[in-house]
Amino acid sequence: MSTQRILIAVSKDIADAARPSLESAGLGVEPVYVQDGVRGLTAFVKLLRVRQPPLLVVLDASHDRLPSTRAARAMRAVERGFGIEAVPILFYTTDAADESMKGSLAQLGRAVHLKRPEDATLAEQSIRMTKAIAKLLQKVRG
């Protein structure tokens, strides 16, 4: 059985803080960490090429290059171009869940948004992200 992966394109501080909690959560997946939307898209296409699409993509909005919703649009476009099913996306951003975000989620499909609490510590933020990932993986795996 091939390794199941999740792609995590978030800022380095969150990624570093999240590693321990993701490892200890026993999710049965191998996280692939990247630090901006362009690298996220590159890693995403590489996984599609070897026919091992990630179970989940996590994106935050702090990237200079291809921030979250734009990276997600590009990923969806690649999926359609390659003729494969949409991979679930979790936006973990400090953005408010406003109409713009809701509109993006509706257009993208199979995407959810979880607000990253800016006033929380990095450890708290990463635990929140890990819990959301665990919950989504449970859904994905049925």
Binding site: V38, L41, V45, K46, L66, A74, A77, V78
Partner: peptide, 14 residues
């Protein structure tokens, strides 16, 4: 500009 970035990312991946 985003499309160009995406294009290059795809080329790199492939």
């Amino acid at each position: 500009m985003d499309a160009a970035l995406a294009m290059r990312a795809i080329e790199t991946a492939m």
